[in-house]
Design a binder for these strands. Structure first.
Lengths: 353, 353
DNA sequence: GTGAAAGCGCTAACAT
DNA sequence: ATGTTAGCGCTTTCAC
């Protein structure tokens, strides 16, 4: 039987006040936990609150206060484990401080990113956690500066002259990947990535290359970088292998690259680690259960979220001082997709389904 | 050089009014697109708006209006592709109608679910899209009813006597899976799932069983259902195989079950589809690139989100009538993880890494 | 056509 | 210790 939907009017602070026989101001004080209220009156307020099911309207409350207790979060996407976990963390941390998190996805578009930011500014959010599509030099960060917004930049950033930044220590993690691969004896390695996320991809590439060259000056490092999207990368990778290149290991600088690499291996009938080794930046749940399990760099989501919120609230509460750039250490999980080179010969021909 | 963060006061409607030499009421009308304003005055308002960078404060605006243009979305989690895509879709649809989506994760807890809902009620959201942890009979839906909230239930629901519901047609999809597996010759199939999400899991199980039995009355269908969490399921599955059970195919009723099944196969050294076939409810990007690719039921996220929002806005705008229960058709993607049984003998001993 | 007045639900000074 | 007053930024009658 269709119950009628629709909001019956909720009790307001005045309803409570008249039920309790006090003024709205007193109710407000009781709700705020001010102790200077006569305990008898406080009790009457509590009773009325109970009776009427009264709850403070956070919007009306914020309206009067100086700052709104809303934090905005802008992520490039919500579909990956990484950003999903990030939003979950941020939400929970905001909530702990009595703030509401409003999250939005820029869907990898800088234009949308700025639009969302403008809307968050309209909402007069207390602060923003921005995971920019590209890096700290994009239009969104500029908008935040121009409008005096409070914010923290995370993930695809290194450091900024106006905002605190928190990201994974890509360079250090990549250096460790280099040590592992070189230690396994690899001397011809392909690195794949998406170029425009400059900040972090550059750090990952440089960190890898520097350490690899130090450990084995003769190592050959090929790089396949696409500009914006993942499909061009797939095409470039296909060309690369079609030319007859036969690296013994691939290091993918981002999650979708790992998927692309895997699917290209499949097309050619190569198996890890016998035909080729694979390590990816960014871990995912499925990587442990595939055969073979895929080695991956695990980003410390909780630390990034935690330090981002810490920094943000410090600024919201008026904290001064130069911006701080944090790099959080990653874990590198070496799984079965990595082994010594040349365990099995490459099959020279593609043989996919 | 640390630029000072912090909001300089934004222009209010009164600032615009005085700059334009009109009243706030007129500015409000111009912003709302009312046409009865003298075009000369309208122009002066536009100029002032431009000059001051004025934008309506949506919260203050909602304060005065009857209903707030905020939609709440509550998902069990944000970490999976399915719910990530769902939130992205919902956000975009809400935005198209001039609403803001506030999303929150119940983290698979009914207690938290109700808490979040209470907070959304405090926010006086216009409506809620709730993907309940369990099913339509949980405390959250009850809270919504008790408080006269407007809402739509999605995903782990079948139908409700108070709210519109939208979910994937689990039964039909499972029937198709049954046809595929039986058609391949399987006569001993294991179905695994998580029991407490009763609504959909039950539909998936029943849909599968009914069709399987119709096609081959002698088929043996084993069921391993865990109550709440995924780890107990893993344990039960391990016991099941340890007893010497050797089904030729496994149908997992939910994503994490597919991962668990895969990892158990690995422990035992079984490969798909030669040693055992596998189909999972819920698709994921990685399933196409693993070796072998995993067959999966693809839920129509866009349709679910679209119809949910349609139904929700219809109710928000006062639509009456009995609740509608929609079932959206799924796609079943048969991939390499499914083949005829007995292509290769099971290796009787575990041989994992 | 336009503006004055009255709030939405709340809180913060300031009186009392 | 409590109530009164004055708004936060906006919209909406309702006179003019």
């Amino acid at each position: 039987m269709a119950r009628r939907q629709g909001q019956q009017r909720r009790a307001s602070i005045h309803d409570v006040a008249s039920h309790a026989g006090v003024s709205a101001a007193t109710v407000s004080k009781v709700m705020a936990g001010v102790t200077t209220v006569k305990s008898e009156n406080a009790q009457r307020v509590f009773d009325a609150v109970e009776l009427l099911g009264y709850r403070v309207d956070p919007l009306a409350s914020d309206m009067r206060r100086a700052k709104r207790r809303i934090i905005g979060a802008i992520m490039p996407e919500f579909e990956s484990e990484f950003f999903g976990q990030m939003v979950t963390q941020l939400e929970s941390l905001a909530e702990q401080r009595g703030y509401t998190l409003v999250a939005a996805s820029s869907r990898e578009s800088e234009a949308r990113e700025t639009e969302i930011l403008a809307r968050m500014h309209d909402w007069r959010v207390a602060g923003v956690v921005l995971a920019p599509v590209r890096n700290e030099h994009g239009p969104a960060a500029a908008f935040m500066k121009a409008n005096g917004m409070t914010g923290v930049l995370i993930d695809r950033v290194l450091s900024d002259d106006a905002f605190d930044t928190v990201s994974a220590d890509s360079a250090a993690a990549s250096a460790e990947v280099a040590r592992e691969l070189l230690g396994n004896g690899h001397r011809h390695i392909l690195v794949i990535g998406l170029g425009e996320q400059a900040a972090t991809v550059r750090a990952r590439l440089d960190g890898f290359r520097a350490t690899a060259l130090k450990l084995a000056p003769g190592v050959r490092i090929d790089v396949v970088l696409a500009e914006t999207d993942v499909e061009p990368l797939r095409a470039q990778l296909r060309d690369y292998f079609a030319k007859g290149e036969r690296p013994t290991a691939v290091y993918s600088l981002f999650l979708k690259g790992t998927l692309v690499a895997l699917s290209e291996f499949r097309r050619r009938g190569w198996h890890c680690p016998n035909d080729i080794s694979l390590v990816g930046f960014d871990d995912a749940e499925w990587m442990q259960v595939t055969w073979p399990a895929i080695a991956a760099v695990v980003q410390p989501v909780r630390q990034i979220a935690g330090h981002a919120m810490e920094a943000l609230f410090a600024r919201i509460e008026g904290g001064e001082g130069p911006p701080i750039a944090r790099l959080e250490p990653c874990k590198v999980l070496m799984r079965e997709s990595v082994g010594p080179p040349g365990n099995g010969p490459h099959s020279g021909t593609a043989r996919g389904t």
